[in-house]
Computed example of a mutant assay.
Amino acid sequence: MISPADVERLFLQAVLSRGVMSAKLAQLLWEKSIDAVNASDGALKLQYRNDKQSWDEFVTKINHSLDNFELEFRALHDEITGKEMYALVNRKGDDIAQMATDYTPIEITFFKAIVERIMLAPHESYSISSMAALREPTAAKLNITKSQAEVVLGSFVAKGWLLKSKKGRYSLSTRSLLELLPYLKSNYPDEIVECTICFDIITRGIGCFTPNCKTRMHFHCFNTFRKRHNACPSCSKDWPRESKDKQFIPIGEDAAKEGDERSRRARSDEAEESDDDEDEEEPPTQDTPPPKKSQKGKKSVKAEDRMDVDGDGDNGRPSQTQGTQRTRRSTRR
């Protein structure tokens, strides 16, 4: 029996067959789903309302139905065009294998390695060169040849998981940012940067040129903001009118510098563990002999023979350090 709930069923069926889509297409599918249900049962007379509030209410209703499956019909603005995009995504970020079932384990591991290099790219460049991408299988000790890696990279681009620019650099696509966002937030929390205006993740855009200012914006967010405001929303520094002005700090492949990929940058948690290991000192043992006292008549004392002012007065041994202070270096610039 036909019911209003069939609109949601038909809509989700259409979404599953299309993947990432624009908001305009998603709303068209909603309208077509309503028309199909009305055509099946003329007594229903369901109405399609082309306004934002009605659309938001429908999306909320869809997501409520998907809660038990840990799925979500999620929106994100395309970083290049600024268009609102939608996709049905897995909310759980515990396994990147959700990206596709037709890739082999080796290919998925390869993709994870590429994602890591992109997320850890210095200077907020969020990209990796073609040469560096082709070296990843060797670095990750994967049983895959260079020619095979080229084919797989081409597949990642063709299926919309990666973007390849005219400069030959790979970066994350809108599809990856939509569908892998839980994974990215879970594995790279310190590398995630959000747009100051829309609060979406940003991997392409501009940053304020004032030292230590945290303002970051997508190009389309900047263009909208700049029409009404003349200064940075964080530091109040006057801004140029054009986002391409050289004063701004680039975010994305334009921020990449020669030599960036000669060394690997570790995730923040890995770097901290490494620093902790380097900073830990082996405490002196109880068998350490006491320092020799300077002899009378000597004009100088060797460095190793100097008395420790914090030493134990009874036995002349240096006191044990109660706690080693550790310093942590930030992996971000």
Rank of each mutant, 00 (worst) to 15 (best):
R326W: 05
G311K: 11
Q325E: 10
G311S: 15
T321S: 02
D305V: 06
R306L: 15
R332N: 08
G297I: 09
Q320K: 01
R329H: 02
K292W: 11
R332K: 13
K298R: 08
T331F: 06
D312C: 14
R326H: 14
D287P: 07
E281P: 02
R317E: 11
P284Y: 13
T327Y: 14
N315Q: 08
K296I: 11
D310C: 00
P283C: 08
M307V: 14
R332V: 15
Q322S: 10
P290I: 15
S300T: 15
S319N: 07
K299P: 04
P289N: 03
D279S: 10
R332Q: 12
D305P: 06
P289A: 10
K292N: 02
S294W: 00
A303R: 04
G323C: 04
Q320G: 00
E280M: 06
P318W: 07
K293T: 14
V309W: 12
R333C: 00
R333P: 06
P318S: 14
D277V: 13
P290M: 12
Q320Y: 03
D308C: 00
E304G: 00
V301F: 01
T327R: 09
G297P: 08
D310F: 12
D275H: 08
S330T: 08
S319D: 13
K292H: 10
V301P: 01
P289F: 07
V301K: 09
P290C: 14
D277E: 14
K296L: 07
T331A: 02
P289R: 04
G316D: 07
E304N: 02
A303M: 13
S300F: 15
D310E: 04
V309M: 05
N315H: 12
D305M: 07
K293W: 12
S300R: 15
D277T: 08
S330I: 11
D310K: 00
P283Y: 05
Q322W: 13
G323E: 02
V301A: 02
M307G: 05
G323M: 06
N315D: 15
D275L: 11
K299I: 12
G311H: 06
E280N: 05
S330E: 04
K293L: 15
Q320C: 00
R332G: 03
T331L: 06
T285E: 14
T331Q: 09
K299V: 11
P289E: 06
D287E: 15
T288A: 06
R317G: 05
D314E: 09
S319E: 11
A303E: 04
T327E: 12
E278N: 05
K299M: 10
Q295M: 12
T288R: 05
D276Q: 12
D279L: 02
K296D: 04
S330F: 09
K293I: 15
Q325R: 04
K298T: 02
A303I: 14
E280D: 09
P318L: 05
D275M: 07
S319F: 06
M307C: 08
G311D: 08
Q295E: 14
Q286H: 10
G297M: 04
R332M: 10
R329Q: 01
